[in-house]
Design a protein around this nucleic acid. Structure first.
Lengths: 216, 216
DNA sequence: GTCTATAGGTGGATAGAC
DNA sequence: GTCTATCCACCTATAGAC
């Protein structure tokens, strides 16, 4: 049952890392929760950080594959892709993943802004380079006016906004108790596409300030 | 030198929490880095979490005070405030704080999407309720068409985007090595205001999907 | 207020039997 | 591949002298 133990460890780690944080989840907690013995993590993944990396790769690889496939379709079409379609190709798979594995997407959101030492692990073996390549191929076609620098940051702003959609905000319930309900995931996706498409299309009011390094 | 030790502890904790994470920074590391003795944290703050709360309150209280003051000015003006001005009142103080204490704003960004147990501490004694009240008073004037629900989430999207501006992204340097440089802070502020104002003004394409709970 | 010493517990990782 | 037992470094918090 080697495969089975491996999967159970990944499941348990994903859940505990997400709920309590990576550092706060001990290898002992994880193996106990997975019904495995204490040494299993080190046997299967080498170390706790190896386990974290495997947790990320398991979800990010298919997620990015789906994103890339959608973007390739848009890139191959003869007409210029609509901005909303590009955003949907990027965001829809993430929301689908969130429906199926909300714990992972919350963990992923947290790792996104975590201290550097952890961030470097997350993207290994996830085809992220190819995803970025496809974004850089499709987005400028829909937004020929925008500089690469501008697009780069705006895409990352959208990633930050997505993280909030997945984690909620600390204010929710604390500051607006009862007044604002959590929306369903499909609504949040549409909300984010509307927001992101408008943000990406914004006309910079400060073009004159752009740095020399800001080329293309 | 009681005050002095206290401040030094806050400084050291802010830096270490930000660089390594809260959990990864031990009380011993903090006291050593502050030049204080091991028991100082417990004497001055009761516990490690008490120290974290004090670290947050020290920065968030003046930050929110500045934001609130700016929003009050806009609210008292006879004419309808421009959306960009409201956003600037909210974002400018944060970027000023980032210039003076980048470690704190990175820590704050990380805590924003951290597991729940830590988030509850952050906002105590920070006048966040009043800040939200002022946003809810000013924003609908500039955006009378948008529902409260819509505005709520879009403001949070902007907060998520801001977090990315402060922490950078894991992709930076990793996926786009050398091609995209980090911009100066003032440029990032203007970038975020442009992006956020456009996003806030976006016309929802899915109004029909809005939930019954989505009032006002 | 500051310090040392230490209690009392948990951490990741491994050795070696099965 | 799985398990037990164990190493030892490290953690937070406190007691009690100064």
């Amino acid at each position: 049952m080697a495969q089975d133990t491996r999967e159970q460890l990944l499941d348990a780690a994903e859940r505990l890392f997400s709920e309590r944080g990576v550092r706060a989840s001990s290898v002992r907690d994880i193996t106990r929760s997975a019904g495995a013995n204490t040494a299993a993590v080190n046997y299967h993944f080498g170390s706790k950080l190896g386990l974290l990396q495997a947790v990320c790769a398991r979800r990010l690889k298919p997620l990015n594959a789906e994103r890339i496939a959608g973007l390739v379709l848009l890139a191959e079409a003869p007409e210029t892709p609509r901005l909303e379609c590009i955003l949907r190709a990027f965001l829809q798979p993430a929301f689908t993943m969130f429906r199926e594995h909300p714990e992972f997407m919350r963990l992923f959101a947290a790792l996104h802004v975590a201290p550097d030492n952890m961030r470097s692990l997350v993207y290994r073996n996830t085809d992220s380079e190819q995803l970025v390549r496809m974004l850089r191929k499709t987005l400028p076609r829909a937004l020929p006016e925008a500089s690469a620098q501008e697009l780069f940051w705006r895409v990352h702003f959208i990633v930050g906004a997505m993280s909030i959609a997945f984690t909620g905000s600390p204010d929710i319930g604390l500051l607006s108790a009862g007044e604002v309900a959590r929306d369903s995931d499909p609504v949040m996706l549409e909300r984010l596409i509307d927001f992101g498409a408008a943000g990406l299309s914004a006309i910079p009011a400060f073009e004159a300030l752009a740095l020399p390094g800001d080329s293309r």
